[in-house]
């Protein structure tokens, strides 16, 4: 049982016009086995939340805390956060020329576990996970994200989530740019990890359609850098019908 606790988180970024505050006091608690959907309009700060938790240097935490089982996440380096059990599936995964997927996965697994995986079981595990995500075996010899289609990049992110077995996974708009078939495959992957582990999932999305495949326990509406409303799955249904207009007028 693990808990990711975000308290009164304020985050700003440097812009040409000076520092700009994007997160204005975020409170969220995510427990193992739970799935929280974070929904909000573009520019509301959803991705900033994801990248701040992962430790991207572009974002400055001005106040607040993030802890994983009481440990101060904000004091950790980017690699240490991953080693502690945090995982971020990125909206725009980065190309790494000359580094093959298989080398990358093995290196990451070794770094997370603190020891190299046993070769034979590892190869089998990778093959199976790739098969379930309907990825061609030749994929393993391609360079990380180089020339991948949008759908391939997202599958590759979920493949990592399956293999690295995080305690807490943040999925940043994993549904964006996917057709229905790809969305189903990716959602099945997330659901498999949920079934086979105690992972807590923070599902960041603009649209409700991924929630047809991945069922959230909690839904949070994110407006202007903070949580405007929290509720159960029924809140997503309401957003589906009404959109975010209801909240927009209430912006400070």
């Amino acid at each position: 049982m693990a808990t990711l606790e975000i308290k009164d988180l304020h985050v700003s970024v440097e812009t040409e016009a000076g520092d700009k505050e994007i997160l204005r006091g975020v409170d969220l608690t995510l427990n193992s086995g739970e799935t929280h959907a974070i929904m909000g309009p573009n520019g509301s700060g959803k991705s900033t939340l994801a990248y701040s938790i992962a430790g991207h240097p572009k974002y400055t935490i001005t106040s607040g805390t993030v802890t994983l089982d009481g440990e101060d996440v904000l004091a950790m380096g980017v690699d240490e956060r991953a080693q502690a059990g945090l995982f971020l599936a990125m909206q725009y995964p980065v190309e790494v020329p000359g580094v093959t997927v298989s080398n990358f996965l093995r290196t990451a697994k070794t770094a997370i576990d603190g020891e190299a995986p046993k070769l034979r079981t590892w190869i089998k595990e990778v093959k199976e996970a790739m098969g379930q995500l309907r990825m061609d075996p030749v994929f393993a010899e391609r360079n990380v994200n180089e020339g991948f289609s949008g759908g391939e990049k997202k599958r590759h992110e979920i493949l990592q989530m399956e293999l690295l077995k995080p305690k807490m996974a943040i999925l940043d708009e994993t549904d964006s740019g996917l057709d229905v078939d790809a969305l189903k495959v990716v959602s099945e992957g997330v659901n498999r990890v949920k079934e086979n582990s105690e992972v807590g999932v923070m599902l960041i999305t603009h649209y409700t359609r991924i929630l047809r495949y991945i069922e959230p326990d909690h839904v949070h509406v994110f407006i202007n850098g903070r949580v405007a409303e929290s509720g159960g799955p029924e809140l997503a249904d309401r957003l589906e019908n009404e959109g975010y207009d209801r909240y927009q007028g209430a912006q400070v």
Binding site: A54, G55, H56, P57, G77, V78, D79, R81, A82, Q83, F87, L88, M90, P93, V94, E95, V96, P97, G98, V99, N103, F104, T107, A108, A111, I112, N143, Q160, L164
Partner: peptide
């Protein structure tokens, strides 16, 4: 040197030194 590549690799638990090595080796791979 692309800091986004470094961030991506480190967000998978890889240390900064190892990540830099991977990127540079990757650059020369072809």
């Amino acid at each position: 040197f692309d800091d986004e590549q470094l961030f991506y690799l480190m967000s998978r638990g890889v240390s900064e030194d190892e990540a830099r090595r991977m990127v540079v080796r990757g650059f020369f791979a072809d």
